[in-house]
Write a protein that binds this DNA or RNA. Sequence first.
DNA 1: CGTTGCTGTGCAACGAGGTGCATAGCAGGA
DNA 2: TCCTGCTATGCACCTCGTTGCACAGCAACG
Lengths: 185, 185
Amino acid sequence: MALEHAILVSLLEKPGSGYELARRFERSIGYFWTATHQQIYRVLKRMESDGWIHVRDVPQYGRPDKKEYSVAAPGRDALSGWLGEPTRPESVRHDLAVKVRGAAFGDPAGLIREAERHRQEHTDRLAHYLAGETRDFGTPAPDGPPDAERELQHVVLRGGIAYERMMIAWLDDVLATLARFGTGH
Amino acid sequence: MALEHAILVSLLEKPGSGYELARRFERSIGYFWTATHQQIYRVLKRMESDGWIHVRDVPQYGRPDKKEYSVAAPGRDALSGWLGEPTRPESVRHDLAVKVRGAAFGDPAGLIREAERHRQEHTDRLAHYLAGETRDFGTPAPDGPPDAERELQHVVLRGGIAYERMMIAWLDDVLATLARFGTGH
DNA sequence: CGTTGCTGTGCAACGAGGTGCATAGCAGGA
DNA sequence: TCCTGCTATGCACCTCGTTGCACAGCAACG
């Protein structure tokens, strides 16, 4: 399980409540690690009882009170240890690859629409990444010396950009291949 | 759940037993969809009781008897329908991306070794893919007319190759970035 | 003969992850 | 006033996936 570690990273970047973490997992971190608010609340509770994080009740006006979590020393140690641990082979689940191989045994028309949907989604996400890159990393350095946190966030974003570009190119390849078998001949 | 559909595709490409399917999920299909033999046996049982697949007892000499599964008409229909269904956003889990962002808060030395391990693994897999491409798709067409099944398997393999190449390039980027913060400067 | 190892199928138990629902404070609009 | 909607936390339930183990047939080796 690595959801704990993703939460640790997010809380180290900025402390926050379970709700706020859930929002971050819908963007930013969420592009590389998904989680629902249920999972997050459950794991936060366990992490708190394990002493990895601190809780602080924050009264709010105009909205419900919240619990703000921040990383404790043992949590920071756990993260450090995890960084060098070998990750077991990530279980891959590429629906589309399975569908493409399945297209040999069914009508490819539906799959073409599905592939076009995916292509559009990846195009949108690429545009979103590129806009974020210009916004957050466009200027050389906003406050002088190179900042590790910033540089590392940037290299992860570059990975996302490379992934989306690769997927778009592959989907063009898929669509061209499907077209050769969908239109008679 | 889409394991059913991955099994349908595999059985359509070639009927086989649960054990044989488990072996296929360690290579070929397994590069895009992972599954243990436990999952496979359980799902096969359900698919059989749903009428998606046929079972046939195959006595063997020199080894235990087996149950050979093949796709029935309702299974083929289920696959056809699934091809065009919109896939819900695949839940992404990229350990390494989380670790890279976490490196800002811990010792990057361990992560460098971990990234190098991943780079090696992707290099090996790329070599394996390329060897398979030469072996299976090197000659223009082994038996005359273009074959949909063969072409679609090829485009999926090209996707795997593109993915590995992208990952290797990104890991080089990651290692260069980590080096800038690990060695003093 | 016993051991190891591959083929082949399966159960039991556990943890991870997701869906649906409940509760509660408060804001804003119809 | 009621309804919708956002913030904020949480329970109950169910499925998926993994781990560990068991059992069985048979081959090859020492």
